[in-house]
Design a protein around this nucleic acid. Structure first.
Lengths: 356, 356
DNA sequence: CTGAAAGCGCTAACAT
DNA sequence: ATGTTAGCGCTTTCAG
């Protein structure tokens, strides 16, 4: 079960040198397996065996074929290969191009998929490229399962999609039937942040939420609930925000105009928190001296050395690994599950004792 | 020549509803063209004609087949399709997952490719996924040409790659032979920034450079040259930086420790400038009152409403469009060219008159 | 306007 | 250990 992957890894290593005998390049034709077989004086089947790194060829032949393939600049045609195989061993991933957290997830999905012998095919969502378009591209690639990062699709769309391809939605909650869900426990995550701040002596705590974004309501509710648990429901403040720096900045500016602004802010995500921090810096507020800030996601933005944001980590690696596992389970015919991962608070430098 | 694309667009629109007759889902099998043909009582050839939207079927048949395909949830297998076609009509794109500017470029490459009837297949580079790995994946997809965003490959690697597949490198200069290059004029771009600042009365101007990053030396040279042109070579200051917020922050902190810090800073890119701005805000420096800051790329980061960064724009859309054109030219057999686009200064809110 | 048949580059039985 | 053969799902002549 491991051999094909090893072979792939090997092929990756081999530096793409090209020999003098390299043949006609420049026209659009690339060498095929038949070309290699002809040059080596063997059958294509043997070449196939060698290229896949499966047993069934003598060491001498293996070496020779490898060398010839290399000289010819031969690269196996993935399309033909997958077409022939009954299962494509392809996982489709739809993600948002400008969301740093999605970048983190994609990176780990690549390796989690590779570890299980799958290839990850990614398809982006952007302002000018809808999630539908992105997902349709995946469908045409005949992926065995689709992984949707922070999907914004409606429940009906998701259910409908799930009928066509095993679907797992990552990092958001959904009621859509038929889809698997892998997400962090948003309620618990926000509670972690609240507990942390309350322990530091904060009372007036605000939450700049994700507005209509997926996961937003869970976090909002979790916030109110946790505040209530501490008897702080009256000093809990929820402000409409969003997923961007802009939303965070606007929310924070609004809060600063208050007669008595909060001493701590929990933002919907790290991007939002970045906007918050920026506004505070510009207004000469010391963080965490005057006001504490907590982000969400533990994305690249939170880890920037001079930022060192306290944030709730969903552990992208675990999320990605779990999502891939869920996708393969689905593809293997098991029924969709909702897997909720426990988030963890990463205490860094943007939170501190409440000002007295 | 336009029809196949129209058809594709249509297919994208059609919402993925599934009928009651939808048949066996859940096992790994998706309907094939043969299934549709059988259900419609026609040949697969006819179904193919309809699915591609090419002329050769009566309106009635077309409607009927479309409906049946829809009901069955049929999606053409892209792999089989491309395999059969002589030219794959696929463009490979390698990009960096965490670089906002690459996100902008990728978005526009998608649409530029679609406009010319090509499909863009993207492959990411990340800390745990090398550019080689990323490019190899593209090669296996049999793309007709590869577009490398801000590639970090060595000239020999690029030349070697170019022998295997038409290659265009975007947004960096390279001496590698055989590859096409589409980039902004970095020397001119930095000069634009310098001229702008000098016109505002700045004399002590620093450049936080890109260290070893591609394009870095051009910008550094352009900076010194432009400063020299204004007789300011003695107050030109080059600081080692990098492509990240961290690099910018470190550079700026270093500059603030000077007995007489510069009144303006030109950062290597927007991410770097973001780090600079952050440090300035934390130190209570007013931008642009005390110090002006210029970024580079006009990426998402520069456009954030409360940031409004003055920056040098490489016009991602034009860059992407030109790169796609260059890729197709190459694929069509024309010889590689270097295309240098003229950058443009976008004056926003982070630059102003030098403090007196 | 519609259908039959060949084959894209590869893999997987099955021979030898 | 190596070769032969038959397709994967689609497009594309070529006939009807």
């Amino acid at each position: 079960m491991g051999e094909p992957e090893e072979a792939r890894a090997e092929a990756e290593q081999r530096s793409p040198r090209t020999s003098a005998t390299g043949g006609k390049r420049g026209n659009g034709t690339r060498p095929t397996m038949a070309d290699v077989a002809r040059a080596a004086g063997t059958s294509t089947a043997l070449v196939s065996i060698v290229m896949r790194g499966v047993p069934g060829a003598s060491e001498a032949t293996r070496q020779r074929i490898m060398r010839i393939a290399d000289e010819l600049g031969y690269v196996p045609d993935q399309r033909a290969r997958k077409l022939r195989q009954s299962s494509s061993r392809v996982l489709g991933v739809s993600f948002e191009l400008q969301q740093p957290f999605h970048g983190d997830l994609v990176e780990h999905v690549y390796s989690a998929a590779a570890q299980r012998g799958y290839e990850a095919v990614i398809s982006a969502v952007a302002p000018s490229r809808s999630e539908m378009t992105s997902v349709n591209a995946l469908l045409r690639e005949r992926c065995e399962a689709a992984i949707l990062l922070g999907s914004g699709l409606e429940p009906e769309e998701l259910t409908s999609l799930a009928r066509r391809v095993p679907t797992v939605v990552v990092a958001r909650h959904t009621d859509a039937s038929g889809v698997a869900v892998v997400r962090g426990d948003d309620t618990a995550g926000i509670a972690l942040a609240v507990d942390h701040l309350v322990a530091l002596g904060h009372r007036r705590i605000a939450h700049i939420d994700g507005a209509g974004a997926p996961g937003s309501s869970d976090r909002r509710l979790g916030f109110l609930e946790a505040m209530g648990r501490h008897g702080l429901q009256d000093s809990a403040d929820v402000i409409a925000g969003g997923l961007t720096e802009t939303a965070g900045a606007e929310g924070m500016r609004y809060l600063l105009d208050r007669p008595s602004p909060p001493t701590a802010v929990i933002a919907f995500n790290d991007r939002c928190a970045t906007g918050v921090l920026d506004v505070l810096a510009r207004h000469g507020r010391d963080v965490p001296g005057d006001i504490s800030v907590v982000g969400y996601d533990d994305s690249r933005l939170a880890k920037i050395p001079h930022v060192q944001m306290t944030t709730v980590s969903q552990n992208p690696e675990q999320l990605a690994k779990t999502a891939v596992a869920a996708a393969l389970d689905l593809a293997a015919g098991r029924s969709p599950q909702e897997i909720v991962l426990t988030p963890r608070l990463v205490e860094r430098a943007t939170t501190g004792p409440a000002p007295s």
